[in-house]
């Protein structure tokens, strides 16, 4: 075999760097949507690779629901310091206080859907014309149809049936005033690819991904962490379990799995034998068959 070929991780890395450079070249004010989860951390790492030896030219934008894991916020602030990048925070609490959105009511209330308004407001007020996300096509069936460069109209909406064709690696980011784009550099990565890459590159990730003892409650087949926001049902009880999180969202909706995987090697081994998708523990996706598509059309991540 010829020595001039790339292995699959190198090819995915090169593709993502290419996308990030296209974003930088085609837009005036692009940002990275940073959640503190592994996918946006990997995107940020790839941005360092794409622009070395310059520092990353993107600000990091965080939509803060107020329902955070404290570990995520600390991780975010440490990373910002290390990169010397700017941080933009959109606050869901402020959107509520300003009457832009109303808190959901009832037992399964979350702030997940409220983020859409805060995100779109932050994009508009900061004059962002491209928001780079860590979304992957393997995550969810609506995401399987995403482009690398994905157009949003001036209401921030996605029209999945009327997307621009995307051929070869020619990306068209042209847009009118008020419209913006979402860019997804790791579209073609799977959960396994992300973990293999984190391991290979030895990328720092929040401790929540590693198995640890935590107070939690059994709900909808997963372990919901105890927090100041948790309201216990009569038949529920707090127990201490060794768990870890496969994805990170709000502390109120992110369920953990029982695990002994406390190193990257063990996590990669564990993920490779998983028989459930990673978003299976996310109650935001369980609301309906098309929950993701419906939110994405409105402007969700």
């Amino acid at each position: 075999m010829s020595k001039y070929y790339l292995n699959y991780l190198d090819e995915l890395e090169s593709e993502a760097m290419y996308v990030l450079r296209e974003v930088w070249a085609q837009f005036d004010n692009p940002v990275i949507l940073f959640s503190g989860g592994k996918d946006s951390i990997v995107v940020t790492h790839l941005a360092q690779k794409a622009f070395y030896p310059a520092k990353i030219p993107f600000a990091l934008m965080h939509v803060d629901t107020g329902h955070n894991f404290p570990e995520t916020i600390k991780f975010r602030d440490d990373l910002i310091n290390k990169l010397g990048a700017n941080l933009i925070v959109g606050s869901v609490q402020e959107s509520i206080d300003q009457g832009r959105v109303a808190e959901e009511k009832g037992k399964n209330a979350t702030r997940n859907a409220l983020q859409i308004t805060t995100l779109l407001d932050a994009i508009e007020s900061n004059k962002v014309d491209c928001a780079i996300g860590g979304g992957r096509r393997d995550e969810e069936k609506a995401r399987a149809k995403e482009r690398f460069f994905s157009h949003r109209d001036d209401f921030g909406q996605w029209d999945p049936k009327n997307q621009r064709p995307e051929l070869w690696n020619l990306f068209n980011g042209k847009h009118f005033e008020g419209e913006h784009f979402r860019a997804f550099p790791i579209s073609n990565w799977t959960e396994m690819d992300v973990w293999n890459y984190i391991k290979r590159e030895n990328i720092q990730i929040p401790s929540l991904y590693f198995a640890h003892e935590r107070e939690c409650v059994r709900r909808n087949d997963s372990w919901i962490p105890n927090s100041e926001f948790l309201k216990l049902e009569p038949n529920e009880e707090i127990v201490s379990k060794k768990i870890r999180f496969r994805t990170l969202g709000d502390i109120t909706i992110t369920g953990g799995i029982e695990s002994e995987a406390d190193t990257l090697e063990k996590i990669v081994d564990e993920v490779s034998t998983m028989r459930q998708t990673e978003r299976g523990n996310r109650s935001d996706d369980k609301r309906s068959e098309t929950a993701m598509e419906d939110r994405k059309k409105q402007g969700y991540f």
């Binding site: 699959y8 069936k141 609506a142 399987a144 149809k145 999945p160 049936k161 073609n188 396994m192």
Partner: peptide, 25 residues
């Protein structure tokens, strides 16, 4: 994947799928 596709039972757009074997992605 999309709601309309499910309702009409057809593929409208390009959908990307991923799988890995011990030999290739």
């Amino acid at each position: 994947g999309l709601r309309d596709e499910r309702e009409q039972g057809i593929t409208i757009d390009v959908a990307y799928r991923y799988f890995t074997t011990p030999k290739r992605k």
